[in-house]
Amino acid sequence: MTFAIEGWFAIDGDDVRLLGTRCTTCGTVCFPPRRGFCPNPACEGTELVEHRLPRRGRVWSYTNACYPPPAPYVAAEPYEPVTLAAVALDEVGIVVLGQVSGLTVDELAVGMELELTSGPLADGPLVWMWGRPS
């Protein structure tokens, strides 16, 4: 398995998780994972530990790309519109953007529950994707 980016998500069998970080001082959670210092301006924490984000969330909003996005995106040929969803993970208070696997915009709705999965980019490497809950 080749990941399109290292250290942002993990695949353990069917379980796909986003790898965020949590500040051990104030509890602020970040995605993408962050090192060095906490983004909370009132916190001087420097110890940010890995924090696996909840796998399910609700759609904050969604869209698609009807035309092939420009490089460095590698578009499939023939091109199929890429669907994107921004999903709210309430337990950690974060909205995370991702491609959507197996659903078009006509099948999505704001508030709908989605679950993290993964899928290949057109040139092979895997990214995290939002999909229908299993």
Binding site: A4, P72, Y73, A75, L84, G98, A109
Partner: peptide, 25 residues
């Protein structure tokens, strides 16, 4: 700014569209 294109194909209009759909909802 490079990563969002490479990993998601998220152009500027994609973000505008997320706001628009959110507003509709």
């Amino acid at each position: 700014d490079w990563q969002r294109f490479r990993l998601l194909g998220a152009t500027n209009p994609a973000y505008f569209a997320l706001y628009a759909r959110r507003r509709m909802s």
